[in-house]
Structures are given as structure tokens and as C-alpha cells.
Amino acid sequence: MSAFTSSALRRRVRARIGLYFGLTLGAVFAGFPVLWMLSSSFKSNSNIFAYPPKLFDSSFTLAPYLAVLSNPVQIGYFVNSYVVALSVTVVTLFVALITGYVFSRYEFPLKRIINVVIIGVQAVPPITLLIPFFGIMVALKLYNTYQGLIITYVVFTLPYAVIMMTAYFDSLPKEMDEAAKVDGASAQSILWRILVPISVPGMVSVGLYTFMISWNEYLFALTLTQTDDRRTVPVGIQLLMGQNNYLWNEVMAMSILGSIPVLVLFLIFQRYFIGGLAAGAVKA
């Protein structure tokens, strides 16, 4: 009897050790590259490839960050990214609220087809749109402008934003707005006065998704902008890499600075991120 329990105990201990070994291995795979980026951003550039490499060495310095933050061109990239990503978030959210409301609360003949189109366009590869977009943006005089990038990202984020918002409205009881309708409330006031105030979680998910896509986008930002006063952070990082092939510490510092907005949003709104993400993956 005692032999049995001690072997069961031993097995459980062994399973536990195995689990933590696996977890640590996974954490090294996931976290070490990030740790290395962080440590490299605080090194002097001559120590980047010091042999043997050290996580934190004697050259610890804030200079790479100061160099990025005191360079007007680099600051410009950040300003551009904020202008574009925030504008896209506002526009997409506004349009998605109205469209999601219609899809959730109205029945109309073309609804099914339009719905399929909205789901379908999400599959269109960005590279396919890039070639005609270039011509369209030049023709509309939107090449190398904020508006050009903003409208591009609105179109890219809108389909999924509409799907998420529709799903959120579908989860709210219809009786509420039907009662208001009987009382003579217009569609607009039902949406803005009744549904929107109780839809904050859905709006946060949509807003985060939209901001992240716009903040991170590279291909169209690269192709539809031409001058430093319109380029965004992801393009700026690559330019810094190309110009100064050897300023690794500044490139890493700029990468960290460029990732902070998403990191902060993630830390504050973690459950919305994961909720929206999971919902999207499973039921989009």
C-alpha cells in the first residue's frame, strides 16, 4: 500500500518537474529574443557583438533612446503613425457601428449577399490590391498623403470590424430597441442613445484591432508614401536599418519605442484583445 502511494507521488513529482522544464524551455524560445532586443537597445553600438555576448554589460546607456527621440525625422515617423492609426480607428469604429447595427437589426433583400461580400473581401491578398491602389491613389492625388493611408487602412479594417460589431449587437436583446421603436425613437437615436452606451466592450475590441492593424502595417505604407514627413514607424525602422547598417542599438531602441503603444494597449485591455481575437478566429 505504501509502495503504491509513494510511486504515485513520485510519478506526480516527476510530471511536475517535466512540466516546469517544458514551460521554461518554451519561455526561453518565446522570451529570449525579446530580452535580447531590450538588452541590445541599452548597449553601446561597439558592444552589440561583443565576445562573449552578455545580456547586460558595462556599456549600459540610454544614448540609443535619446538619439532616436532627439531626431526630428524619427519623431516625425511616430507622429505620422499616431495621426494615421488614431484617424483610422475613429473612422472605422464609426462606420462599423452603423453597419453592424443595420446587419444586426434590419432584414433586407440583399443582406445575405452583402454579408458574403464583406466576409469574402477579407481573403483578398494585400499584394493583389497594391498594384491598382498605387494607380488609384496617384489618380486621386492621395499618393504620399495621410488621407491616402487612412482610407486604405479603413477599407482593410472595416470588414472584420463590421463582423465583430454585428456579432456584438446580436448578443444584445432586441426587445430593448424594439420597445424604444414603439415609443417612436428613430434608428439613429436607438443606435447612439441605447445600443452604443452598452456596447463599450465590443467597441474596445474593434478599436484595438483597428489601431493595431493600422499601427503595424508596412507594405502599403512603404508603397503609398514617398517622403519622410508621411512615413510611418514600421517603414522608418527599415529605413534606419538601411541607412545606418551598423547602428543596431538605435534600431533596437526604435523598435522598442515603436512597440510600446501596442504593448500598453495590450496590458490595459488584455481581456478585450483575447476575447475579440478568439471570437474572430472562431466565428468570423
Partner: peptide
């Protein structure tokens, strides 16, 4: 820790792994 890589955009991931 496991979610960390997801925070970084492809442009950042690229320069990090080049390093």
C-alpha cells in the same frame, strides 16, 4: 511570456532576428 512575440509587428520582428 508566451504571448510576447505577438506584440511585435513584422517590421520589428525582422530587424530583431537579423540581429
Amino acid at each position: 511570456i508566451y504571448i510576447l512575440p505577438w506584440i511585435f509587428t513584422a517590421s520589428v520582428v525582422a530587424v530583431l532576428w537579423r540581429l
